[in-house]
Amino acid sequence: MGIRTGLIGYGLSGSVFHAPLIAAEEGLQLTGVVTSQTDKVREDYENVDVYEDVEALLGSGVEMVVVASPNTLHYEHAKSAILAGKHVVVEKPFTNTVREAEELIQLARDKGVLLSVFHNRRWDNDFLTVRQVLDSGTIGRISVYEAHYDRYSPEVEVETRWRDQPLPGSGILYDLGAHLIDQAVQVLGSPDSIWADLRLDREEAETVDYFHLVLAYPQSRAILRAGTLVRQAGPRFMVHGDLGSYIKYGLDPQEDQLKAGLRPGDADWGADKEECYGELTTAVGDLTMRTKIDTLPGSYQEYYRGIAEAISGGGKPPVRAEEALEVIRLIEAAHRSARERRVIDLSSVPGEAAQID
């Protein structure tokens, strides 16, 4: 029997990401879900109980709660679970404000429970490979780290998609931006300043659907961008250093694999297409060398494996809440930069900067 786990929400993130990955981890046991989609849960997991409200789930004997409700409810649901003495995983973004994130972190410390945030794209196959290339030293000192999420989604769906509605935590910066910022901070640490261009690019857009961020470091820059009107995607990653460059096209397949019903351990789980392997360009003497780098397999399952091990063994979670707080701090600073049309010196921005190991 694994750690009894309850899930709040059975929309896209709950049903596609969290429930399958929890069920695939031997150290966890999915025992209950809060949702109105009773039939869907029972079709997917016949032995899992369905609850109409959060209070009923919290009283059911679960030891850990995963918050996969809409962004407007992350803080409320996480706080209720922490106060009930449960370990908590929150779907990204952690919260909508730094103040909320700081409060939850302190509450978790006071109650002695684990608090983590589902920044699963640390385990994307492309990002794992970027880190491997950087660790090898073949690029040298990073000059420019650039990462994109290029998508073509010209239709605004305000009536059916809460992420397109003008609500706290909506828009592409809180969605894809949270992933890009988290990845950049994992590679380069907390930046000294940030500049942001945020736009409502589509004609009927009511939330940010395009962003371009520049995170400044003493000797390097991170350029992060995502948009909804990119019919032909460019490189996913471009990393340039004083010894070489690495350029990678294509997206990690795990989201599509989960949607198709595949699970960790299935054939080709997290595997990249050979034609999407990144290219490393370096020099050997006077010769320029270009080498295809095999993409490491993606491994979202490592997140919940790490959660189970942290709870059972008392170690650190795979994503610390303080790291997720730093992402929210940078998102808030990006909004301020766009609003005031200037670079924001992050030394003057409140919030507990993450200590990246």
Results as ranks from 00 to 15, higher is better:
187 V>L: 06
91 E>D: 14
156 V>Y: 02
148 H>D: 13
142 I>N: 10
133 V>H: 10
143 S>T: 13
157 E>A: 14
178 A>N: 08
106 Q>A: 11
93 P>A: 10
132 Q>T: 09
116 S>D: 03
175 D>M: 08
95 T>E: 08
136 S>D: 12
124 D>P: 03
172 I>T: 11
159 E>M: 08
156 V>G: 08
113 V>Q: 03
100 E>K: 04
114 L>I: 12
190 S>T: 12
141 R>M: 04
86 K>M: 06
133 V>Y: 03
194 I>G: 01
108 A>Q: 04
165 Q>R: 14
173 L>Y: 06
134 L>M: 09
109 R>S: 09
163 R>P: 02
149 Y>T: 15
174 Y>R: 15
154 P>D: 04
84 A>E: 10
201 D>E: 12
113 V>A: 07
109 R>M: 04
159 E>R: 14
201 D>Y: 04
88 V>E: 00
111 K>D: 02
195 W>P: 02
94 F>S: 01
97 T>R: 08
112 G>F: 00
135 D>M: 07
123 W>G: 01
152 Y>I: 13
190 S>E: 12
201 D>C: 06
103 E>P: 02
190 S>R: 12
180 L>Q: 06
87 H>N: 15
171 G>N: 07
84 A>K: 13
158 V>T: 15
199 R>M: 08
89 V>K: 03
177 G>D: 12
89 V>R: 01
145 Y>P: 04
134 L>K: 12
185 V>L: 10
108 A>L: 07
85 G>A: 09
174 Y>P: 05
158 V>M: 06
82 I>C: 03
99 R>W: 00
163 R>F: 00
145 Y>L: 12
118 F>E: 15
202 R>I: 07
94 F>W: 05
152 Y>T: 15
196 A>Y: 03
104 L>Q: 01
195 W>H: 15
185 V>W: 02
86 K>G: 05
162 W>C: 11
102 E>Q: 15
126 D>I: 05
174 Y>E: 13
183 Q>F: 00
144 V>Y: 03
102 E>D: 11
98 V>L: 11
107 L>G: 00
196 A>Q: 10
198 L>A: 12
178 A>Q: 13
173 L>P: 05
196 A>P: 02
132 Q>M: 05
169 G>I: 05
179 H>T: 14
88 V>H: 03
148 H>C: 13
169 G>Q: 09
170 S>C: 07
145 Y>E: 07
99 R>F: 00
118 F>S: 15
145 Y>V: 13
135 D>W: 01
143 S>D: 14
187 V>M: 08
109 R>K: 14
172 I>L: 13
108 A>F: 02
80 S>M: 10
114 L>W: 02
136 S>C: 06
193 S>E: 11
84 A>Y: 02
121 R>H: 06
171 G>I: 05
91 E>K: 07
120 N>S: 11
123 W>H: 13
168 P>Y: 07
121 R>Y: 03
108 A>P: 07
115 L>A: 10
97 T>N: 01
128 L>A: 14
139 I>R: 10
115 L>V: 07
139 I>L: 14
140 G>A: 09
189 G>E: 07
157 E>K: 15
165 Q>P: 03
187 V>A: 11
137 G>L: 04
117 V>Q: 03
104 L>I: 06
144 V>Q: 08
116 S>H: 02
165 Q>F: 00
162 W>R: 15
162 W>T: 15
117 V>C: 12
192 D>F: 00
176 L>Q: 13
173 L>T: 12
165 Q>A: 14
142 I>M: 08
168 P>C: 09
